[in-house]
């Protein structure tokens, strides 16, 4: 803490070295790439979290996208007739919340790939941070919408007479909920990554 008092005279590279060597316990070789003048110090923890966000949003989007189930339900028209076997299908595009979920996850996945490609550039710090913020809001709202739809499907709502549907489409519901949980983990990883970025900026701040 005392060494950082004299930091205002230093430039960002030195501050990056100092901060990462102090946090070396959980960051590993954080300041390995501080060589070039234009290259930003690459944060190993941040890169790992970003790779995790990339993989998790991809998995969630694909898992929700391939999720479909066809079951047969029995309908009794009259007592004398045998019950009718009607095949019914559930898939993700039947629900607008799940469509939003898939689109948001795909967008965050693409953005994470772009940010991973641009993480060595010094000038990309601010756009990547703003994009991270937007991705965070998008991901959390998509998770909220999809989870709300899933809970409505699992429990129904007796006040407005919306019946539960997960007793018919059991496997569909389970896979959708798994996708939502994976996406929720990605959203929390995004939050942690953003907070680490803020912490890095704060530590290299001249007022710290």
């Amino acid at each position: 803490m005392e060494t950082s008092r004299v930091k205002p005279g230093f430039n960002g590279v030195a501050a990056g070295f100092d901060g990462s060597s102090r946090r070396a316990g959980y960051m590993g070789a954080g300041a390995a790439a501080v060589g070039g003048g234009r290259a930003a110090p690459v944060d190993a923890c941040g890169v790992a979290l970003r790779v995790f966000v990339l993989a998790a949003t991809l998995v969630a989007a694909v898992m929700m996208g391939v999720d479909r189930q066809t079951t047969t339900i029995q309908i009794t028209l009259a007592d004398t007739l045998p019950p009718l076997q009607v095949p019914v299908t559930a898939k993700w595009s039947y629900s607008s919340a799940f469509v939003y979920f898939v689109v948001a996850n795909a967008m965050v996945c693409l953005f994470s790939a772009a940010a991973l490609a641009a993480c060595r550039r010094r000038g990309a710090v601010v756009p990547v941070m703003v994009g991270d913020l937007l991705a965070l809001a998008l991901l959390f709202s998509a998770v909220g919408a999809a989870a709300e739809f899933g809970i409505l499907g699992e429990r129904g709502n007796s006040h407005v007479r919306w019946a539960k549907v997960c007793n018919v489409y059991g496997a569909f519901c389970e896979r959708a909920m798994a996708a939502v949980i994976v996406s929720l983990l990605a959203a929390f990883a995004d939050l942690v990554m953003l907070m680490l970025t803020i912490l890095t900026i704060h530590k290299s701040s001249s007022y710290y």
Binding site: A137, L138, G144, L191
Partner: peptide, 23 residues
């Protein structure tokens, strides 16, 4: 830090309430 946290909270609340309002 708190702004980012509350933005996440409000975004998830808006998403879920918007979902039920849309249905």
């Amino acid at each position: 830090l708190l702004d980012v946290f509350y933005a996440a909270v409000m975004a998830s609340a808006t998403g879920s309430a918007g979902g039920v309002a849309w249905i």
